[in-house]
Design a protein around this nucleic acid. Structure first.
Lengths: 189, 189
DNA sequence: TTGATTTATTGACATTTATCAACTTTCTTC
DNA sequence: GAAGAAAGTTGATAAATGTCAATAAATCAA
């Protein structure tokens, strides 16, 4: 049941099975249907998710109803509406399941408690954070230095699976371009 | 001498003076002239900086010589070419002093050693990382949801001091727009 | 200070991307 | 499998932004 997660956790840090069990015992399981909302914009994000199957997205909706995708969280990764979760303040972003998904989640109190319960947790979290931060830096760089076509080519290189799996509308949101522009540049490659 | 840094460190975490001294003893001081390069693109970033006075920028240069600013590090903050420093691999980005600056720095080995020497260091680093990551998420959101004018207004709101202090060429790079566009939208506000 | 260099502004024009609308295709749900 | 809904495509046009060039202003170094 925890295979994907176990792999994720032990890939970089040495954790005993006993410690893993402490961690697993704190997790709750949620099955989300396609398009189901896990976090409504405006409320405080109380969960950190690990996507076991499926895919989540963290997205923003502007006054005109236009959506943009802040992050995609495919299976095998942790994710949450990070600023809201860490600061425990209302989130401008929502979280939605893009596919029928199976996610484990940790409540905020459990997340904090794990630092005391599990000596390795700090390291696991730290490395995960470093990795996510590095990814966000690269995304910023792509946004300030590349045009739409280059950004799409980069995403195709880094996440070819996602592009196939997800509606291109979502991919466009993620790239920060319109659906029409994406459609056009796909036909030109 | 360490006042700015001491404030930064003790603002959120409780650290004893003895512990602070351990930390300070690892720091080296560097005075950099305006425009001096602290890290050349292509080499591995060996230092994490704390800017005591002045301002650094982490920037990229493309094949046509066009520059874009990945990050600005004003006085009172930590910063480095993060992916390169953490992974100890060559950096696509350079680091430059934008003003005559005074920076403390930590070498990579010392940075790693601090985790063992100073029990509080992990927490300090973790919180600093969370803050930086949150800032980068907000920057991504601004890049995918806002136009140039809105991004400039946001920067003006968040970092009014920087806009006054730094050449608008750099501000434009940071916003991901051309110098001319920035000049035009400034005259329209 | 002065001349030289860098930076900022402005105009004309090109390019990229967005927007709106019509239409087609694909997916969902019963 | 059919009807309806959602997503994708394509065209026409508009808006935002980039590029290049000329000039003005500011800054720097001697």
């Amino acid at each position: 049941m925890y295979e994907v997660l176990r792999n994720f956790l032990t890939r970089q840090i040495d954790v005993s099975d006993a410690d893993l069990d402490i961690f697993f015992s704190r997790l709750k399981l949620k099955k989300a249907k396609r398009n189901e909302i896990l976090l409504e914009a405006g409320s405080v994000c109380r969960h950190m998710y690990f996507v076991n199957k499926g895919c989540l997205r963290v997205y923003l909706k502007d006054i005109n109803g236009r959506e943009s995708t802040r992050f995609l969280i495919p299976d095998g990764r942790f994710g949450t509406a990070f600023p809201s979760f860490i600061l425990q303040e209302p989130s401008p972003a929502s979280i939605q399941a893009l596919e029928s998904s199976e996610v484990f989640y940790l409540t905020y109190p459990d997340f904090r408690q794990l630092f005391d319960l599990l000596p390795q947790w700090e390291k696991i979290y730290l490395q995960s954070l470093e990795r996510d931060y590095i990814m966000s830096i690269k995304r910023i760089e792509s946004l300030i230095t590349m045009d739409a076509k280059e950004r799409y080519a980069l995403l195709m290189k880094n996440e070819p699976g996602l592009i196939q799996r997800l509606p291109s509308k979502i991919i466009a949101d993620y790239l920060g371009i319109s659906q029409e522009t994406l459609s056009r540049l796909k036909s030109k490659i």
